[in-house]
Computed example of a mutant assay.
Amino acid sequence: MVFRLGELFCGPGGLAYGATHAIIPKRPDLRIEHAWANDYDDATCKTYRHNICKDDASMSVYCGDVRKLDISLENPLFKDHPFNAFAFGFPCNDFSVVGEQKGFDGTFGPLYTYGVKVLKLFQPEWFLAENVSGLSSANKGGAFPRIMKDLHDAGYNIFPHLYKFEEYGVPQARHRIIIIGIRKDFPFIFYPPAPITPDIKDYKTSREALENPPIAPDAPNNELPCMTKTVVERLKYIKPGQNAFNADLPAHLQLNIKGARISQIYRRLDPDKPSYTVTGSGGGGTHIYHYSENRALTNRERARLQTFPDDFEFKGTREKVRRQIGMAVPCDGARQIFEAVLKTFARIPYKHIDKCNIKFNNE
């Protein structure tokens, strides 16, 4: 049973890496392979090609705006790369609680409909969709039910669940809604895989992620960031786990910001806890700061927090790489969910949660 995966909004390959590395012991016939992918950013597509489908000789990665993608049976992208599984981490910018939460009224909110179009036209056997936890409250709570209904009406029973990835061995507090859809002609019910680290004392810490094993000196994307003297001096006063607003800073190093005081500004990691959420954008003070060294993390260190292996090489400028890492799904968290999908279709029992924590009526 081989599933060939098509992807919209593929990013650098967090979902794809997790999918293609999903392993069922003693069942090598159960696997997921890359079919085709799409993203609008050139550097991101280069990263995906380099790590997921080396050199992309068959032109399986379409780099361009999804709004200009010909989603039809005649498009060579789909004709030459048949697929029976689908993933799309539709853009979260307009659903994130960190942003303005414009939802459907924003530029990115309606883009999920292109995923729905793929589902309606090609009817893959299953799909995985991913978005931020803020999706459930966007448009005054109206966005999420509408998206769920559209996915259901495309021909799928859907199983939405809010995953806390720190409970799945990921060294980062990252909470995301993952929706598994199974075509209605299949008799399967999907159950979220059980957490492997449900107890807070077992969470993988940022120290474990960054130091065990040590990052090799020649690891890609590990260039030290440029730090100003003022930032270095400010960090000397900020203890692990603190930020620029709850640390005891001298007057000349305090930030003169009115209104909301964002807790991530110049926030150091706590070495004994998972990292806070790795993000892909933001100005000064939002780059995640080392717990013992007076500097921001390297991109390689951020990638470790997202469970990318050290030989996963990101392409593009340092800032573009930062964005790719922050927008990705943690590879290892994705792998566990894809393995549960494979076991569901193969009727292989696995440890699971008895029901999804987000309600939806599939009738």
Rank of each mutant, 00 (worst) to 15 (best):
I215G: 04
K204D: 00
S206C: 14
G241H: 09
I179K: 01
T230E: 12
I262S: 12
G283I: 07
S206T: 14
V232M: 13
P271G: 04
L210Y: 10
R207G: 00
P225A: 05
P240E: 03
E223G: 02
H252K: 13
S263E: 09
Q172K: 09
I177Q: 03
Y266A: 05
L224H: 07
P240A: 02
T228F: 01
P220G: 11
G181D: 09
S206V: 10
P217R: 11
I177N: 04
E233V: 00
R267I: 06
I200F: 01
D270A: 13
E233C: 09
I182R: 04
R234F: 07
P220M: 10
I179T: 11
A216P: 00
I179S: 02
L235I: 08
I200A: 15
F186C: 08
I178M: 12
Y168P: 03
G280N: 02
P220T: 09
S281T: 14
V278A: 07
E208I: 01
I265Y: 12
K239M: 14
T230P: 00
I182D: 02
K229H: 06
F245R: 11
L224R: 14
I265G: 01
A244C: 10
I189M: 07
F245N: 07
E223P: 00
R267K: 15
G259M: 11
I196A: 00
D202G: 05
S281P: 01
C226P: 00
T277N: 06
K273N: 06
L255T: 04
P198Q: 07
A244G: 04
Q254P: 05
S263N: 11
Q254S: 05
P198H: 07
